[in-house]
Amino acid sequence: MSPIFYLLAALTLAGGLAAVLLKHLVHSALAVTVAFAGLALLFLQLDAQFAGFAQILVYIGAVAILIVFAILLTHGSELPKGGVFSHTWFLGLVIAAGVFAVLGWAVLASVSAVPQSNIVPSVTVHDIGIALVGRYVLPLEIVALLLTAATIGAVIVAMHEKERAR
């Protein structure tokens, strides 16, 4: 366990926690970007260069921007009057804590049973590309279809309904 891991883990978790707790929606969006960046760095720490850069490109470059646009389009940059947490916040907290307890217990109890190799995998982009168009070509095509459908769907859903507008 290197100190870099602890640093990145702290950064990621702090970003996530801040995103969930901050009152201001735009601050939340910026905090979740920090969490995304921390995760990308953790991917790099795990020698998954391609996935790390894809994470930055997709999450910081696209998802964070989408979130920010949605916040502005729904007037979310003003503070809500009735508080930001729902009435059943305590129940939600208990459920989250319970889930974490179960996950943590499962990890700690079973991780010694998993065989672990510590060889640094030498995976090049070339290998990933070959795998994508070889063994994983069907999922790739399905994802392409899904993305197209999702883009068209999102545009249609969010489009102005002309007869209803004013």
Binding site: L13, V20, S86, L103
Partner: peptide
Amino acid sequence: AALLFAIGLGGALVRRNAIL
């Protein structure tokens, strides 16, 4: 990862705003 998952779940359950 487990902690981050719990944080995300907590956020989804606790907050009011749909974007959050």
